[in-house]
Design a protein around this nucleic acid. Structure first.
Lengths: 190, 190
DNA sequence: ATTTATTTTTGACCTATATCAAAAAGTGAT
DNA sequence: ATCACTTTTTGATATAGGTCAAAAATAAAT
């Protein structure tokens, strides 16, 4: 589903509105492993993943990368707090495969917000959906076994689960990568 | 800090605006252990905790209560997804001590949103703050020891940590209540 | 095509924390 | 003040999953 379809599904826009809104975004092709934002930098753009996927991650005390979130095709990707509050980002934002993104600056987004009240609603929808998803992950992580967490991953990100390095998924799920490897090998037996 | 002070701190309002906004809310006193929303019901109101505290929780497969979030004085409390999307709530909302709340229906809130664009901004601020907090908890839970999680709790909810039953905190932190009890008894030795 | 680097798998061992059970402490109601 | 009920603590035991180390499989580079 294209960007404009996604927008239109969330809130009904006219052709002209949609056209104008699209014009506030910039399309960008980025290649695999490109870093969009570094920890400590301000996240200047909100991205829409038209095609491809990305992740956010941080470095823990042992400098190990911990994946915080995956952003698949059709999702908005950003370091939300950094973007909206103009604070240094706690996370890296990385593209995991060659991707096409639409990006918008905070200033332009604000312009859209004031021009189209419906955009405010769209913003609220997108961010509450994100909040719900994060709570879901929290519930999965909080009390479930490694096996169950992986099942959650398969359900939540079926497209992503098989396309990114094992280690990224393991850290996302809060387990050692050896554990995830063992879980997967169990699966392939049955 | 009172409700109007909190609003004013997030976004600057005039006296008249503030007065009008306040008028869209209803003040309500609720007593300890009162349930505001049950799992499966639609959460009809957004609450501001003027005084007191509450929590959201759900029942796991063994019918055990799992605390999902604490809402202290000065915070907005709701089952966000249910409230904004009018979907059945996945969570109970409970008041943990005699409290004073300001509540508003979705319809009234929408009215405020369209009347005061600044309210939209406030809404965005509140919800991105929530999102940040949930991500923080996720990071704490994902890879930290029971001891470290409890430290996170003390840092994040210092007021709440000593005022609610141990079991609520343990489930919030994703550990057995026996474990939390042992952590605390370690503390009191030193 | 080889070599080099990266990622995944497998094995052995260990530890943090869960679970089960029972005692102790605390709280509320009559 | 006593009884009933709830919450917290303590002890003993079990286990899921972490850690360390090395081998195997993949992928990337020359």
């Amino acid at each position: 589903m294209s960007f404009s379809d996604t927008l239109n599904e969330l809130v009904q826009f006219s052709e002209a509105e949609l056209h104008d809104i699209l014009n506030h975004f910039t399309m960008k092709s980025v290649s695999k492993n490109e870093i969009l934002v570094k920890q400590g930098e301000i996240c200047k753009y909100l991205y829409f993943v038209e095609q491809g996927m990305g992740r956010s991650y941080y470095l823990n005390d042992n400098q190990k990368e911990i994946t915080q979130w995956f952003f698949g095709t059709g999702k908005f990707m950003s370091s939300a707090d950094s973007f909206f509050q103009k604070k240094p980002s706690l996370y890296y934002l990385e593209v995991l495969e060659d991707s096409v993104l639409f990006l918008i600056s905070k200033e332009n987004l604000e312009r859209l917000f004031s021009k189209y009240p419906k955009m405010e609603k769209l913003g609220r929808l997108v961010i509450t959906e994100m909040l719900t998803n994060v709570f879901n992950k929290l519930n999965a992580i909080q009390f479930q076994t490694a096996r169950e967490r992986y099942d959650y991953m398969l359900a939540e990100f079926p497209d992503i689960a098989y396309q990114v390095p094992l280690g990224h998924i393991a850290s996302y799920l809060g387990m050692a990568q050896e554990t995830l490897s063992r879980i997967r090998s169990q699966d392939s037996i049955n």
